[in-house]
Design a protein around this nucleic acid. Sequence first.
RNA 1: GGGAGCUUAGCUCAGUUGGUAGAGCAUCUGCCUUACAAGCAGAGGGUCACAGGUUCGAGUCCUGUAGCUCCCACCA
Length: 806
Amino acid sequence: MLEKRYDFKTREKHWQDFWRENDIYKFDANAKDKYMIDTPPPTISGNIHLGHVFSYTQIDVIARHERMLNKSVFFPFGYDDNGLPTERYVQKEKKVRMSDMSRSDFISLCIDTTRKMKDVYEDIFSSAGCSADFKNAYSSISPRTQEISQRSFIELYKAGEVERRNSATLWCPECRTAIAQSEIDTVEMDSTMNYLNFSIKDSDEKLQIATTRPELLCACVCVFVHPEDEKRAHLVGKKAITPIYNVEVPIIANPDVDREKGTGAVMCCTFGDEADAKWQKEFDLPILEGIGYNGRITDLAGEFAGMKATEARSAIVAKLEELGVLYDKKPITHAVSTHERCGTAIEIAVRPQWFIKLLEHKDEIYKAGESVKWYPEHTQKRFLNWVDGLKWDWCISRQRLYGIPFPVWYCADCGATIIADENNLPVDPSKTMPNKPCPHCHGTNFVPENDVMDTWATSSLTPQICTDLLTNKGLDDSYIPMDLRPNAHDNIRVWDFYTIAKSLLHFKKLPWRDVMISGWGLSATGTKLSKSKSNGGTLGPHEAYEKYSADVTRYWASNASLGKDVFIQDEEFNNGFKLMQKLWNASRFVLSFLEGYKLTPNTEPEHLEPMDIWILECYKSTYKKFMSYMDKYEMGLALNELEQLFWNFCDNYIEIAKNRLYKPEIYGEPAKESAQYAAGCVLLGMLKLFSIYMPHVTEEIYQDYFAEIEGQKSIHTSGYLELTPENTSQTLAYGNKVCDIVSQVRGYKSQNNLSMKDEISKVTILGLYCTVESFVKDCANDIKAVCSIKELEFEKGQQEEVKIEK
RNA sequence: GGGAGCUUAGCUCAGUUGGUAGAGCAUCUGCCUUACAAGCAGAGGGUCACAGGUUCGAGUCCUGUAGCUCCCACCA
């Protein structure tokens, strides 16, 4: 017998322990029917918030659903505790600077800090009832992961897909590292357009140049004008002289120049932006490093050397004004590329870097993007659009400390690249040296590669890293393609993209069959929740669990259309709370009539009352719709269907059936048993469907009666209840007519200020109801009882009508 | 500038092949009814952003317009 009140505060914890102790979610690698999820490993870079709970709950709902379809579900868990985000977090949290510490001290501080954070993360997710396997969680910095990641590097190196080049790279002067195209944000910034006069060699003419980056004047290597620019055609081939530095630079015709922009003449500096980088290559221009790796102006700038770029900018503008070269300034706003991690405007720097070749595989990646199934469907376009716009190979080297090292040394004598032996991975080249002399010059002095790999070079291997937990085979494709990659829309161009790229490079196979793209949980005002900032008053995970319960928090998270952002609003939580209470009360009521009754869900009793058949058909119809939504990962829409059935069950069916349950002496024992069967079955079926959203309360109810009936340890491994379909549509329509009639009598009572139990002396049902006459007539007892009608008559007539006489 | 999504009741959103506009919240009215007052029963409320088109019929399909959001491009 269920308690009067459901005490979620103690029961949720109880069931979480129960599931853990009984290994309910254990994956069986030998199972025939498996479902494999490439779970996103959360980045350890700050406090976890409801936005995370939002995403992981949606994944968990899918995992639970597949489990209820009797599949063995591989739902691994991992932590992305590697690389730049973690470094930044640790420095901030521990108030240290990486540059002040030794590499090994800093790394052990990172490992220590992330270990503590992992416990916090696991607690938040398992308290939400997440059924992932936290016990065997992988880490993106563990030796095993390092081994897999380094092996991937070596394989691709041997295949010629990765190479070291000294070429222009996107550079963050704040983090002092190369970054990849996917790590760039674009931010609108205020700036000033400065108009300068360059003089022309052997001429009195002036060439007007507009620039937002006068600090790069020292790195100016040429001036471009448009080939069809008549006014300036005569200047092509002459030399312009840069102000302040008085350096002669060629004036070159270039069709890329936009004649409407600025003055129509461009100074090209190596490098001010990506266009400069492109032009440098095209015209084979010299490379002058105006800004150093630290973001400061170099010696090229003479008196300005050592200044930060922004300081230098104003100093140089002042100087230009003083020289009378600056003839105009206009404030503008323009888009600036910034590093997503720190917001600093990126520069372009030349330095030897490791690249994975992507540009030459664009077509294959594009086609793979077409083959993967994206849910919702339109997210595919976002992926394809990104692949279309790809401009850089993937720079995977980072000039940082905390990451997976390259398994690479350089021969000190001949400069040859020495790749580590695949049997000796993982390797830290700064600690270990090659075990053989240089194959080229037989030298024995080596310089380690001190850069570390981009975190995505490793994260892109999660299908291998997580299935390695099963196979111990490392870089292996036995489980590829997996069934599902779930993540939010911000990761389409990053994690999804890189994973597909690597899977193609290594295995020529898709990493997974489906991608489910979820939205974000946003604050009540629609702002993005942030790990590093507090989100002023926004509900936190534990607050939510305590105030509303984990089940209700999950209800909020999963009650959204796929891919849509959802606000954290009390109303939604309140709805979930009401649902949970209602589920409890309705179950308590139904179960109170099942004591001593042995429910046999798959064997119907000989006699079934019409409205019992009706509710069973309602269930079957909902079940079908529910499944078709879940096939598309539309868990929110599936939930809506289910809720509709549930409220219909409560408000109409239970009210109708309760009289037969209470008074078998009036309505007969078979009519009671019919109701016991129908109510029991439909409740059981609904509980199972609800269990993927609200695993705790449904387990509590299930354990009270159904667990024994079904001989199951837990509702979550009990499988859905599928009842054989019948003549659904007619029965549904007929039953709905009965509900109509009941509703009209209820309306009459409402309008006449009557209580629902007040008796109505006579009701006549006329007309159109004749088409369903026998069904409705067979429900006469139910109708009379639920509406307290003394006399009920049926008459043929033209119009459908319910006549009520008080 | 290119791509995607959105625009439906006061609010948050459903609306799967075209066929009489839906839910929850909010508002109003009534009701302690042997599960539930954190409840129940009812009621009001919408030119489905706008303009065209296809169709017997359009929230749904097509074209265009406007506004909002996101991604990409735009850094002289």
